[in-house]
Every structure is written in structure tokens, then in C-alpha cells.
Amino acid sequence: MDRNNAIISVRNLVKNYADFTAVKGLSFDVYENEIFGLLGPNGAGKTTTLEIIETLREKTSGEIIVDGFSVDHDANEIKRIIGVQLQAAGYYPNLNLVELMELFAGLYGVNIKPMEMLEKVNLQDKAKAKYKALSGGQKQRFSIATTLLNSPKIIFLDEPTTGLDPQARRNLWDLITEIRKNGTTVVITTHYMDEAEQLCDRVAFVERGEIIALDTPDNLIDQLLSRGFERTKEVKKANLEDVFINLTGKEWREG
């Protein structure tokens, strides 16, 4: 993996909402084919940053290049090569999942088999269901399926595992790893640190619109330990999540 080939480069990104500055001069690169995590507390500016890169929001200042295209001039080129899962989004009312997939295929101008896309996220049994009738986790999975339609070079996942059960979360990790294996770059936000540690090649910690740390999870942990950090309580060899997985099995849940 060529670690020095930046597919996204963000320089001095600033975003003001009226008189409130949500993003204060962010600069970072995302390398080709890595899984890059944006971590940080609520309101830190993660979604704002992602949506500016996705060309869905206007920036106040700064420069962003996505695969050689500038967000200022080539928004449409960028939209064609990215897949976007929004933290909050809706889908056309009264349509079932297959029909929604057909709609998105048209919007992206691609030919796909709706069922195959649904199978990727294990929703083939819900093909005739309406989006509204899905459970929270199924909605998330459907959302992710729509990001894969145009075989994007980069996908953006904004809290894709929020609300998922432990199995679904793990299965989604497998899916994301799989997507990356096929050559796609992944930018993800999450509030689960185990997830970031497991998935991400590099993570950036954002707080109040500024990056306060950016490195591989390993390095960040080592740095912390080298500063003399110790956990207050020794952890057991298993945790409650292991118990959950062990008791309920590894498969996706349909219900």
C-alpha cells in the first residue's frame, strides 16, 4: 500500500455558521486505499467537515482536492466517484428497497442488479419492504448499500454503526474491510473507539473544529502509554460484548 499518495487533501478548512466557527482551519490528507477515521465528541465538526468534502455544504475558506478535483470547480466530478452515507438522510416515500435501488442507479447513471446490492448488506429478504418499515440497523445497512452503487473510489460513512447490534456491527466491519480490499478508500466517523482501533489505518481526533491528534491507532496508544498512562482497573480477558456475541451467535439479524 502506497501510504504517501493522498486521494483527499484538506488545507486550512474553515466553516462559519453565522457567527459560530464550527471548523477552525483543519488540514489533513487521506491516503489512497486507507480507512481513515474522524473521531471526536458531539459537535466537534466531523459531519460538517465530511459534508464539505462531499460538496454538500459550502466552506467558508480553505482548499480541498478530492482525487485531483477541486470542490470549488468540479463538484459534479467528485460526486461521481464518491459514495456517501449521511448521518441523517431520507429516501423517496412509498418505494420498496428494490425500487429505491433502481432510482439510485438512474441517479448515478449506472447499471446494477438491485438484488445483488441488497445481498451485500444482507437485506435480500427485505427487498419488497419499504424503507420506513426497516429497523434502525437495517436502515443503516441499506444506506451503506446505496453508497456502493457507483463503485466509488472513496466512500464516506458518517456513524454507520450507530444503533447497530454487536453482530451487525461486526458484520459491517467485515463489509468495510471487504470494500477497502477492493481498492476503495474509506472515510468513517464513529463514537466507538474499539471500532476505530479495529478498522482504521489512521485516525484524526477533532475537537471544537481543530485536529488535536492524527496518527495510527497503535502509535496514539503507545504515545499515551509512554506518557505514563495506566488504566485504573485491570481489564478482564473478555468483556460484556464478547459475552453477547458468544451467546447470540455471529449472524446478521433480520428482524
Binding site: L56, N76, K79, V84, L86, A89, Y91, F104, L107
Partner: peptide, 10 residues
């Protein structure tokens, strides 16, 4: 936010 999702496509 259906339109927002549309805007993420070309």
C-alpha cells in the same frame, strides 16, 4: 432529507 441524499449524487 431525501433531496439532500439526491444532492450527493451527480
Amino acid at each position: 432529507l431525501v433531496i439532500k441524499r439526491f444532492f450527493a449524487t451527480p
